Computed example of a mutant assay.
Amino acid sequence: MNQSVNSSNPNNTEGSSTKSVAFFDFDGTITNRDSFIDFIVFYHGRFAAYFGLFRLLPFLLAYKIKLMPNWQAKEKVMTYFFKGEPLADFQTRCEQYATERIPQITRKSALQAIQKHQELGNDIYLVSASPENWLLAWCQQKEIKLLASRLEVSKGRLTGNLLGKNCYGPEKVVRIRQVVDLSHYQNVYSYGDSSGDRQMLQLADHAYYRPFR
């Protein structure tokens, strides 16, 4: 598995008219931190966020030592911080986060890699376990397609649960295959930074693990 991004043409097929496709993880790959925790701090303030995370520590530790799956730990955190929040208010804050905060935590080298793929006319997907709510506006601005976790809403309010499966690990590949016919591409690139990206990296012809650090 490649450890860094080649600064030359990522297609390695100069003169080819056949497109390539690139899949980027978000948290820790494009960003220098976990946007899930960062968003909670942005939304609730530092004190309330860290106090809540302290109360959730048993669940977070259970996840850390693999006694609780990723999706269940995420729902515990979402339920504590956001259950009952009106979707309209939540989405407004998500869009503020996307425009005001995400640019502050992105890695310059990751943005350069995205730009290089765009210059070559390649299709680009952001594939993230984070909810699509605070990623969509940023992806639209960057002209990147988005595959991400979804949040359940009932009567206009968040329930704290995920809608469908968490877009993590094997689910990333499931989501990719649902919308992308990889046989249409000459090269498939994947960029990730954690075990949650392993299957997506294995999917690629050219896999880059923690390339922007």
Score class of each variant (00 low, 15 high):
Q3I: 12
S7P: 03
S7C: 13
S7R: 14
S8L: 13
N9M: 06
N9P: 00
N11C: 09
N11P: 01
E14M: 09
G15S: 02
S16D: 01
S20W: 09
S20E: 04
V21N: 08
V21C: 14
A22H: 06
D25K: 14
T29L: 09
T29V: 05
N32E: 01
N32S: 03
N32C: 04
D34N: 04
F36V: 12
D38P: 00
F39Q: 03
I40M: 07
V41I: 12
Y43V: 05
H44F: 11
H44G: 06
R46M: 12
A48P: 00
Y50C: 05
F51H: 02
F51R: 05
G52D: 03
L53D: 01
F54Y: 06
R55D: 00
A62N: 05
A62S: 08
Y63Q: 09
I65L: 14
K66V: 13
L67Y: 12
M68D: 02
P69W: 15
N70D: 12
N70A: 15
N70T: 11
W71N: 10
A73C: 08
E75Q: 04
V77D: 00
M78A: 14
M78H: 06
T79V: 10
T79A: 15
F81V: 14
F81N: 01
E85A: 07
L87P: 00
D89R: 14
T92C: 14
C94N: 05
C94K: 13
C94H: 05
E95D: 06
Y97Q: 03
A98T: 03
I102N: 00
I102P: 00
P103E: 03
T106H: 00
T106F: 01
R107Y: 01
K108R: 09
S109F: 14
S109L: 15
A110F: 07
L111V: 08
Q112G: 08
A113C: 11
I114D: 00
I114F: 11
K116G: 08
K116P: 01
Q118I: 13
E119S: 10
E119A: 14
E119H: 06
E119M: 14
L120Q: 05
N122V: 15
N122Q: 02
N122F: 13
L126M: 11
V127R: 13
S130A: 12
E132F: 10
W134C: 04
L135P: 00
A137G: 04
A137I: 11
W138F: 09
Q140G: 02
Q141V: 11
K142A: 05
K145Q: 01
K145Y: 03
L147D: 00
R150W: 10
E152S: 05
V153Q: 08
V153N: 04
L158M: 05
T159L: 10
T159H: 07
N161A: 15
L162E: 04
G164I: 15
G164Q: 05
N166A: 12
C167F: 14
C167H: 07
Y168D: 06
Y168A: 06
V174C: 08
R175N: 01
V179Q: 03
L182I: 10
H184I: 15
Y185E: 04
Y185A: 10
N187I: 09
V188C: 09
D193K: 08
S195I: 15
G196S: 07
D197F: 08
Q199R: 15
M200R: 13
L201P: 01
D205K: 02
H206W: 04
A207I: 01
Y208M: 09
Y208R: 12
F212H: 01
R213T: 07
